[in-house]
Design a protein around this nucleic acid. Structure first.
Lengths: 183, 183
DNA sequence: CGGTGTGAAGCGCTTCACAGCG
DNA sequence: CGCTGTGAAGCGCTTCACACCG
């Protein structure tokens, strides 16, 4: 499989693909290109923590449930092991294999299960408070779906994914003609 | 309101804020900083199409429903006016003010309502087919939540928002300590 | 001083372009 | 040849740094 084929499949340029190969330390051959099976293994080695990582979800609304089904049993090294909500009617059950707890128990469950990543899918008004709780519990990274910037200590990694902003962006560029763009 | 205050609120640097002011053509004064009311108006003028823009959603699963409630009556100039699904049980009703149609009717509804933006929230296996249908119907921009790169003509703007990739990214950087990052 | 507006520098990602090799 | 691996150039966004002004 050659760089230009991988490039077409992934929607990027061949140069990009070769650059990425360098970055993850995988080498192809000019004759046969890249061996996909080995390549996948190299990518996994590069991305995954050898011990695996566990994530939790806070906020079991429509978005929360969508996220649970997205992540259900996707990658063995990165699993969703708990979900939390403030509403007592939403907890103490299992959705798509993920157990739901009342949000009071975040700290305990994080410690008990060794969770290092939090996914925040609560309303904007609660996001900052939830983030604080997660950080105090010992989380290392946050995936934030609430449309507010989170204030957290420097050493916590935060990725903001503001969905309505994404729509604004599409609306804007759809009018003002530009090229595609990624995650 | 001064640039450093806006910066703190938005989670960016003061220099960024002033740069953005230049880009949208709004001027503050060194004495009073920026007038927030006028500023919001300037931003709207910059972002919004004067005639407004209409969007549709394809795929009424958990994610689809979450998106509907996100966008319900947010911005007057950018509204979600229709939702589509293949499943007959999900259509012919109104969710959060958004009418649901069978996906066969995409082309007709796009034309009838002057829709220019499509939000794709269907399973990966159907995304490309849906995208094609949308493009043929005359859509200008696509917000894609399916975890596949879409192949569309050059002049269509596509924004890919692969949520599980976002989680991988957080997992990776949470281990390898980096600074926060945006939409 | 404490702000804004902005040219210029910095930085990271993307692309070019070419050596090397079967 | 055609493809990989990679130094170097390009490009766009971010940050610096400073003139200007009340």
């Amino acid at each position: 499989m050659y760089s230009h084929q991988l490039a077409k499949a992934a929607g990027v340029t061949p140069a990009q693909v070769r650059r990425d190969m360098m970055d993850i330390g995988y080498n192809g051959s000019p004759i046969h290109g890249y061996n996909v099976t080995e390549l996948i293994k190299s990518i996994d080695d590069f991305l995954d923590a050898p011990e695996g990582q566990r994530a939790m979800l806070v906020g079991i609304g429509n978005l929360g449930r969508a996220l649970i089904s997205y992540f259900a049993g996707r990658r063995p090294q990165l699993t969703l092991v708990a979900a939390f909500d403030r509403d007592p009617r939403k907890v103490n059950r299992v959705i798509h294999g993920t157990r739901c707890y009342p949000d009071k128990r975040i700290a305990k469950v994080v410690k008990a299960k060794g969770i290092s990543i939090a996914i925040i899918a609560v309303p904007a008004s609660e996001a900052q408070a939830v983030a604080k709780k997660c950080v105090k519990a010992g989380i290392k990274g946050i995936l934030n779906f609430a449309p507010v910037p989170l204030h957290v200590p420097e050493h916590i990694y935060v990725l903001d994914t503001d969905i309505s902003m994404a729509l604004e962006k599409v609306a804007f560029f759809a009018r003002n003609k530009r090229r595609r763009s990624g995650v």
